[in-house]
C-alpha cells in the first residue's frame, strides 16, 4: 500500500464521520462539498473534514480507495456512504438520520 492509502485507511477507520472535500468546512471551494457540509451541520453530528486540495496524494488516493472518481466523499464508521447526490438524497429521505442513529452517532 502506498503511504497515502495507508493514511486514508487509518483516517477512515478512526474517524466516526469523515468528509473528504475540496476546501474546509468554513471555506468550501466547491458547491458539492459545501452542500454536504450543510447536510452534516443540519444533521447535527460531529464530523471531521480532509481538504483534498491541500494534499494531491490524498486527492488521487481517495478515488482509488473507494473506486469513486469524484469529491466529496462521506464515510461513516469506516463505511463509504456516497458523494453529494447520494448524501443529499439520503438526507431528504431520512436514511442518513437512520444511518447515523444505527452507528450510535446521534
Amino acid at each position: 500500500m502506498s503511504d497515502a492509502t495507508t493514511r486514508i485507511k487509518d483516517l477512515v477507520e478512526q474517524t466516526p464521520v469523515l468528509l473528504f472535500m475540496k476546501g474546509t468546512r468554513s471555506f468550501p471551494q466547491c458547491g458539492f462539498s459545501a452542500k454536504v457540509v450543510d447536510v452534516l451541520k443540519r444533521e447535527g453530528v460531529t464530523f471531521e473534514t480532509v481538504n483534498v486540495l491541500a494534499d494531491p496524494a490524498v486527492r488521487d488516493g481517495i478515488k482509488a480507495f473507494s473506486n469513486w472518481p469524484t469529491i466529496p466523499q462521506l464515510y461513516i464508521k469506516g463505511k463509504f456512504i456516497g458523494g453529494c447526490d447520494i448524501v443529499s438524497e439520503m438526507a431528504a429521505t431520512g436514511e442518513l438520520d437512520k444511518e447515523l442513529l444505527a452507528a450510535g452517532l446521534k
Binding site: W68, P69, G82, I86
Partner: peptide, 23 residues
C-alpha cells in the same frame, strides 16, 4: 445507489479523469 453510480462512472471512466469536472 453507490453501485448504480459506479456503473455510470465506469461507462465514463476516461471522461471522468479530465473532460467532466462535475456530474
Amino acid at each position: 445507489r453507490i453501485e448504480r453510480h459506479q456503473l455510470v462512472y465506469a461507462a465514463l471512466h476516461e471522461e471522468m479523469k479530465g473532460p467532466i469536472h462535475a456530474l
